[in-house]
Design a protein around this nucleic acid. Structure first.
Length: 588
RNA sequence: GCGCUCGUAGCUCAGUUGGAUAGAGCAUCUGCCUUCUAAGCAGACGGUCGUGGGUUCGACUCCCGCCGAGCGCACCA
């Protein structure tokens, strides 16, 4: 909003002074310290350095060309050459008024919308979704929501693990030890049991493993019975996925599982061989180093005991089967041909960083022209640890099932709501608990910098103080309750321009204006935690405002201004939480 | 061994092109409810940003060495 106006003016001024300068990095940001001004730019310093100019002199020259009088009352040059802008109160008021009229909510649609494929969640058939899936699912969903909000064209695709060697064992188990009643009761649990039993037997007896392999071979060859069983396993698994996604409010445009690409795998390998990109080695087919970079930077080499040895991307196993590199190559190819995206984003565990590096490089060697037109991005994330700092497990040492986790979150939230607000009816409390509990889980997962592991803690997650979903939701209910108590509607708020006086009013208003900047940063860096931190700051500012600035007791322009700030804060909180996939509640 | 990621307050974590005095919650201590939800707010205490160098007008941020942790290293995904 205002920073964009100032930024455009500043870039124009810089171009006048330095006609050949690249102004894409000439940015205007909010001042971290309000005493310096409202907005600042420090872009002139690196610009001056590059040209060996005196930075303060350059700042003077740029300032002389700067035409920002309608927005700013003062532009200062500070320190080594910072530009500080002080915005006219009327300019602030105009932006707020535009927002309350519904013209914008402090962010703008992307000037150049992109088509972005986002690949996330990717659960495996016949396995329960566990805590780990909350990461890919939550981060992926938040990113997809933010991209859409900013006006990009988004295609979400759930790359379900519905193919692979595990189906040999599952088929064997299904045919020999399936418990139909157990399947009807909890299909995934029964499938999991089949796998565990057969897998243990295979470890113990080679003959058993051979049996499983035969089942797999029959499936791969299109055997009617095995295909039917396999499809049944997918169907019952999908039903469980859908139940979880329903609770989480996550939807996909497509769910093209690994098996969808089966017909393409052979042709992909043949094409790689024909083009000389892959070659045979020890019976397998792989893509090897092309020697174009030093060994240290070459992902197709690995150092073993001082020797650089090949670490190829295998696309066909020595038994003729394909692996996930092959599938992923076919998937990139399909997505480019079908949707022509500008970008494909993979929200997958950081441990697979190496795989994605190889995948992207292999694809670039396979289809150089197509690869130049698309940005392939691996958005990785760390593990969830228990409060003991070790991987998060149940007391008995099993992985925590996602459904159980969500149940417990809602139960704990219900306890808290009942304690804090016993007068509400049970259905109301349950609905609030659902929103607060699920919101708390999602928020706790989105808050940490995604690349690091984080420690899971029920108490911290559902705490009502600190950077948590309940705190944000509480801030929202407080501003909403003002309208409820006052019996007011937001409709008449735009009649006169707001008049900001109190420091807490000004601080709140300025934070509102930064919403768009933050949404853009989330999309730019694929980091929803920027939005979490922004909303937490906003909630803190509105809490302070709430203490120091009575709303309903104020009169005239002061009252109107404060009501307007409450309304807009409510809208930004709601929109921001929605972008994180978190619902809001009017009371809690 | 090689590579990747990381190391910030007692604990859990933020820290948006390198930018102005490194922030929050918890814990400890002190205040504030006849006043829009105190599920809150204000304040105090707490830091050689692992460590040693380097680049820079300026480094938590970039580069190199070292120490420590996690992860990954052909035919599972």
């Amino acid at each position: 909003m205002l920073h964009l106006t100032l930024q455009a003016k500043l870039q124009a001024a810089v171009r006048t002074v330095l006609p050949d300068a690249d102004v894409t990095h000439v940015l205007v940001r909010p001042c971290p310290d309000a005493r310096h001004g409202d907005y600042q730019s420090n872009a002139l310093l690196p610009l001056a350095k590059l040209r060996k100019l005196n930075p303060r002199q350059l700042a003077e020259q740029v300032k002389a060309q700067l035409d920002v009088a309608e927005v700013c009352e003062v532009v200062d040059i500070a320190g080594p050459g910072f530009l500080n802008f002080r915005v006219r109160p009327a300019a602030f008021a105009a932006v707020l008024q535009g927002a309350v009229r519904g013209e914008h909510l402090f962010f703008a649609q992307a000037a150049q919308p992109r088509t972005v494929v986002i690949d996330f969640s990717s659960p495996n058939v016949a396995k329960p979704m566990h805590v780990g899936h909350i990461r890919s699912t939550g981060i992926g969903d938040a990113l997809q929501r933010v991209f859409r909000l900013l006006g990009h064209r988004v295609i979400t695709d759930n790359h379900i693990g519905d193919w692979g060697t595990q189906f040999g064992k599952l088929l064997l188990g299904w045919k020999q030890i399936l418990d139909r009643d157990a399947l009807a009761k909890d299909a995934i649990a029964e499938l999991e049991r089949l796998y565990k039993v057969i897998n243990a037997e295979c470890d113990a007896e080679p003959a058993r493993l051979e049996e499983a392999k035969q089942e797999l071979v029959k499936l791969q060859a299109g055997d009617a019975e095995n295909t039917e069983v396999w499809q049944e396993m997918i169907r019952v698994s999908q039903a469980q996925f859908d139940a979880i996604y329903g609770r989480l409010g996550v939807k996909f445009d497509h769910a093209l599982g690994e098996s969808f690409y089966n017909p393409q795998l052979g042709p992909v390998v043949e094409d790689l061989l024909a083009r000389g990109i892959a070659r045979e080695s020890e019976g397998a087919v792989g893509v090897f180093s092309d020697g174009s970079v030093p060994p240290k930077e070459d992902v197709f080499l690995v150092n073993r005991d001082g020797e650089w040895v090949p670490d190829p991307a295998l696309v066909r196993k020595s038994d003729g089967g394909f692996n996930y590199m092959t599938t992923d190559l076919a998937t990139v190819d399909y997505r480019l041909k079908t949707w022509a995206p500008d970008e494909i984003v993979y929200v997958v565990d950081d441990r697979q960083a190496g795989h994605f590096k190889k995948l992207f490089l292999t694809f670039a060697r396979w289809q150089p022209d197509a690869a130049r037109k698309v940005k392939l991005v691996h958005v990785g994330f760390g593990k969830i640890l228990g409060e003991d700092g070790k991987p998060f497990k149940t007391r008995s040492g099993d992985t925590v099932k996602l459904g159980d986790l969500l149940d417990e979150a809602e139960e704990r939230a219900l306890k808290a709501v009942t304690e804090k607000n016993p007068d509400l009816s049970e259905p109301e409390r349950k609905e609030i608990a659902r929103i607060v509990g699920l919101g708390a889980v999602k928020y706790a997962d989105l808050l940490p910098n995604r690349q690091s592991d984080y420690q899971f803690s029920w108490d911290k997650m559902l705490a009502l103080q600190g950077n948590t979903a309940p705190y944000l939701l509480y801030a929202y209910t407080r501003v909403r309750s003002i309208f409820r108590k006052g019996g007011l509607e937001a409709t008449s708020l735009s009649a006169q321009p707001p008049v900001l006086n109190a420091p807490d009013e000004i601080a709140l208003a300025k934070q509102l204006m930064n919403f768009g900047l933050v949404l853009e940063a989330v999309a730019e860096e694929y980091r929803p935690n920027f939005l979490c931190n922004y909303l937490y700051d906003l909630a803190g500012l509105v809490a302070r405002f709430y203490e120091s600035c009575p709303v309903l007791k104020a009169e005239g322009a002061e009252r109107a201004t404060r009501l307007l700030l409450c309304e807009l804060t409510g809208r930004v909180l709601k929109q921001g939480l929605e972008a994180l996939g978190i619902e809001t509640t009017e009371q809690m």
